[in-house]
Amino acid sequence: MCIVAFAWKAHPRWKLIAIGNRDEIHSRPADALSRWGDPSHLLAGRDIKAGGTWLGVSEQGRLAVVTNLSGHGTPDAEPASRGDLLKDFLSDDGRYSSLNATDFSDFNPFNLITVAGNKALIHSNRPHARSHILAPGIHGLSNGPIDKPWRKSGYLNSTLAAWIENESSNPGILLENLRDQTTFPLAPDAEPNSVSSLEPQNSAVFIRNPVYGTRCSTVVAIDHQGAGMITERRYAPSGKSTGDTRLSFTWPG
């Protein structure tokens, strides 16, 4: 993902709401959101090239979403895939299933939100590894530092806050908010996304570009009783929607 707004215990109905866009080179292959066969409790899209994911939920009561972190040079081709970090955490199996035992320096720069049970954490691995518990409220991730997010991240947070303040109960509306193409300058000292030089200094929540742009929008909503849904809307290089997938799931009560 490249931008995420995350509401944690901030709505009378929803335990959490996560909304975000995945910006990526359009030619990089990916499978649409689905329930994985192994393990069957994991629901996510899949990066075909590396095998992991960028956002997913597990019916064991886990959620994870990652963004690239710019400003630390060109990504190294050698480190482990950040998608594997999510896959193992969500599967609760594999080398990276326990974040407490994971050396975040093994990975290219990232920002990460994880939920396990009743605890939400935010993590980053540059300029050093750090994690802290998220208090109830609205939090955002972008390709900027977690303590200095890009301006469009604050804008998306305000969109989610307005949805909550209006006591909205239809998360589908948030998919339209994720198509917003209002442009904002990045933070004054920010560098464009190091994955691609195509992201302009004036960047929007939704990036329409035939080479590098928004590939999909995702909305996750889980209520306080554990009933959840995850919706993904995919886009062609032209920015035209190519299809939606919506899956229901349950979390432990």
Rank of each mutant, 00 (worst) to 15 (best):
I138S: 10
R130N: 13
P136N: 11
I122K: 07
G94S: 07
Y96G: 01
L112K: 07
N100R: 08
A116T: 15
S105M: 05
S124V: 02
F104R: 01
T102G: 12
L99T: 09
D106W: 09
S105L: 06
D106C: 13
V115Q: 02
N118M: 05
S105D: 15
N111R: 08
D106Y: 10
A129P: 08
N143V: 07
A135I: 04
R130L: 09
K119E: 11
L141S: 05
V115P: 02
R130F: 08
F110H: 05
N111F: 05
D92N: 12
K119N: 12
D92A: 10
R130D: 15
T114F: 00
T114G: 09
H128N: 12
D103H: 09
H139V: 08
L134S: 13
N108F: 03
L99W: 01
N100F: 09
L99Q: 14
I122S: 04
L134N: 01
H139G: 00
D93A: 13
L121I: 06
F110S: 12
L134T: 12
F107M: 04
H139N: 03
N118V: 07
D92H: 13
D93T: 13
H123M: 01
S124F: 01
A101S: 15
T114S: 13
I122F: 04
K119M: 10
A129I: 07
P127F: 04
L121A: 09
A101G: 06
L121H: 10
L112F: 08
P109L: 05
D106S: 13
D93E: 14
R126H: 04
L141D: 11
L112I: 02
L112C: 06
N108K: 02
S97G: 09
L134D: 08
R95G: 05
L112G: 00
G137W: 07
S105R: 12
I122T: 09
L121K: 01
H128S: 15
P127I: 06
A129H: 12
L99M: 11
S105K: 03
P109F: 00
N100I: 07
N108H: 08
I133M: 07
D103A: 14
I113Q: 04
F110M: 14
A129G: 14
I133N: 09
A135C: 14
T102M: 03
N100K: 15
H139T: 13
A116R: 05
S131H: 04
G117R: 06
F107S: 03
I122H: 00
I133R: 12
N118D: 15
F107Q: 03
S142I: 00
L121C: 10
R130V: 12
L141P: 02
L134Y: 00
G117I: 02
L99P: 12
H132I: 10
N125E: 05
I113T: 13
V115T: 12
P109Q: 03
K119C: 08
I133D: 13
G94H: 03
L134V: 09
S105Q: 13
G137P: 03
D103E: 11
N111P: 15
D103N: 15
S124A: 14
S131E: 14
Y96R: 11
N143H: 05
G94M: 06
R126N: 09
A101Q: 15
D92M: 05
T102C: 07
S98M: 01
A135N: 14
T114Q: 11
D103P: 04
S142F: 01
D103C: 10
